[in-house]
Amino acid sequence: MIIHQLSVFLENKSGRLTEVLETLGQENIKITALSVADTSEFGILRLIVSDPVKAKKLLKEKSFTVNLTEVLSIITPNESRYYAKALKVLSDLEISIEYTYAFSVGEKSVIILRANNPELAIKALQDQEIELLRASELYKI
């Protein structure tokens, strides 16, 4: 149930994001989700891609600072109360969320989150019958 997300350190200068996307595009790596966390001087680009291991290798060859980060993905009906419910399950167990982002596909929402204790988070969500996505499922969306 652990998903490998690609995290890339980016300086805030024009053209860097383009370079990442072009590098992945040339090798036919598909991007399911993308989010950027930024400060005034640098940012972290987070990507869910079809082949994270290969993507990491390609970006490393281009001298990017890149890492694979373990995240979770849940899929819920497209209503905010389901998102809220999932988050409450975690907060009740004092599992903290470093960051989260989401996107919707038709009637469903796909939520990506990074928890400080992923194993416990998976168990807690499953106990509450919240649907988790496998990597293979997510990469195909």
Binding site: S7, F9, A37, F42, I44, T65, V66, N67, T69, R114
Partner: peptide, 11 residues
């Protein structure tokens, strides 16, 4: 790279 852990706070 070895230190980079994808957390803004850490950086």
């Amino acid at each position: 790279e070895e230190f980079f852990q994808d957390k803004i706070g850490q950086l």
